[in-house]
Amino acid sequence: MKFAIMINEGPYQHQATDSAYLFCKAALDKGHEIRRVFFYHDGVNNASSLTEPPQDDRNIVARWSKLAEEHKLDLVVCVAAALRRGIQEENLAPGFRISGLGQLVEAGIEADRLVTFGD
């Protein structure tokens, strides 16, 4: 089955991105496809390469980059939401790309299920 994921909250502030990550991992483990992960609202902050968590904490941004690399995930950051919040190409972590909201609607059309994680 093809899943699309929308993440609406930033890292460390809210559990949404942790839940989404663990959901994606479990889905991939079961042989499902993650069609796209779309980052919206404060969720765009998950893509900041400037994030530096303490050493004993999980690295949420790097974790997404790694999962994207391992499974060829399409991590899309909403351009309008990103620009509002200071996320640009210069500080975009590996594996993420910036694109328009149409990518969210398209993911909803193409995936069998769209799951939202937010506040």
Partner: peptide, 12 residues
């Protein structure tokens, strides 16, 4: 931001 998605969805 919800309204922004709604407007985009119209194009699809």
């Amino acid at each position: 931001e919800s309204l922004e998605v709604v407007l985009i969805s119209a194009a699809f």
